[in-house]
């Protein structure tokens, strides 16, 4: 038991992301309302963004913007002084994709509501099978 506890404490950040990710996955699978499904997808994406950003973190490192001391001529920039910029870049683009998909999904939901007057999945399926 104490081994498991120490394992959880050593990697607690991953536990948080996995729990958040699973909340999103549960929302996508179990919820009946289409908007709630989309929100579940957004929670899932947020968990992945947090996961990536935490991978890039380094202890005792500063943000990935060069300090004036390191811009001097002949100064050697040490990679351990700055956190990993690559993961932040990848997540910058992931946030953009998540916003685009969220907006588009909302537009689709509006259209579905205009046509069927409902956003509940079971009612939609009933209406579709009748047609």
């Amino acid at each position: 038991m104490s081994e498991l506890l120490s394992l959880v404490i050593a990697k607690y950040n991953y536990w948080l992301y996995v729990i958040l990710m699973m909340i999103g996955l549960y929302g996508m699978i179990a919820k009946n309302n289409l908007i709630k499904k989309v929100v579940g997808m957004n929670i899932f994406q947020t968990a992945i963004i947090l996961f990536y950003v935490s991978i890039g973190y380094k202890t005792n490192a500063s943000i990935p913007i060069i300090t004036t001391a390191d811009t001097a001529h002949g100064a050697v920039v040490r990679a351990a002084d700055y956190i990993n910029p690559l993961t932040s870049c990848l997540m910058l683009t992931a946030i953009v994709v998540s916003v685009a998909t969220f907006g588009y999904a909302m537009a689709l939901a509006v259209r579905i509501y205009q046509r069927y007057q409902t956003l509940e999945e079971d009612e939609l399926r009933m209406r579709l099978s009748k047609e």
């Binding site: 920039v77 040490r78 990679a79 910029p85």
Partner: peptide, 11 residues
């Protein structure tokens, strides 16, 4: 993740 190309980016 912080071993290969990201070090080049920083340096």
């Amino acid at each position: 993740a912080s071993l290969h190309v990201s070090n080049y980016y920083i340096e």
